[in-house]
Design a protein around this nucleic acid. Sequence first.
DNA 1: AAGATCTTCAACCGCTTGTTT
DNA 2: TAAACAAGCGGTTGAAGATCT
Length: 272
Amino acid sequence: MVRAPCCEKMGLKKGPWTPEEDQLLVSYIQKYGHGNWRALPKQAGLLRCGKSCRLRWINYLRPDIKRGNFTADEEETIIKLHEMLGNRWSAIAAKLPGRTDNEIKNVWHTHLKKRLQKTNQVQSIVNSDSKTRGSKLSIKRSVSNSSSVTTQSEAVSFIGFPEKDTTSSVSACTASSSDCGRSMNVAMKCEDVDSSLEHYVLPQIDESFWSEAAMDENSPTIDNKLPVHQYPFDSAESFQQGYGYNGLNFDDGMDFWYDIFIRTGDFTELTF
DNA sequence: AAGATCTTCAACCGCTTGTTT
DNA sequence: TAAACAAGCGGTTGAAGATCT
């Protein structure tokens, strides 16, 4: 079988689409549909290959495309479907109306994969730790010793719960939200990472924690950036209700940490 | 303030699959 | 049955913007 020459050799245009090209494509498809993608660009007066036109229409110009950030529900669906289907992006996209395979693939590689890796990392630490140390949870030493945590910055990519000795640990750290608009990661910088990790249990919190907490005048802060929430949790319910999390609830991915607190059975003297 | 580095995402590439001749 | 063609898919790239140093 002879492969068709690529766009450039045919003298066709590549790269980003202009509004004029978009307009030509949209008005042609609205009038005549897209029966034959290979023939379409010529008939529509576009110097593009059919493949490029098809991609532009499917991923961007289609009227039923949903724009904007993915919702928590959508992200959850992607994670679950990816677990079942693997990298079959088009199959996943079929379950998410208005979303394209390309978009889902991008969001997976840029957000979800990283988030999942971190969650799994901590989960495995917790699992191995609880086996060896009984019910009392202590991630802190496992984190600093774990070979699965390759760098210190990875290890402190979670927000820490200092255990008991709160003042010294918290004051050792400042925090900043990176890429607040999109990323779920929150980076921490510690003046002395090793010693700080000695005092930390590490929950996962998304960027809304910082943005919302920063708005809360009642939340004391450190360096005007790190909100400090005082517990104790007097019960599982108070944690569940999002007490101390500025409105974050279990839909915001706190299930995992709730489970940890349930298993440790210790809801008192937790401060961060 | 400026250069370096990182992140994001639209678009491309090459392969596979399905359909037609 | 095989060749030719068209469409679809997933991996990858690179420009642009954001963030860091």
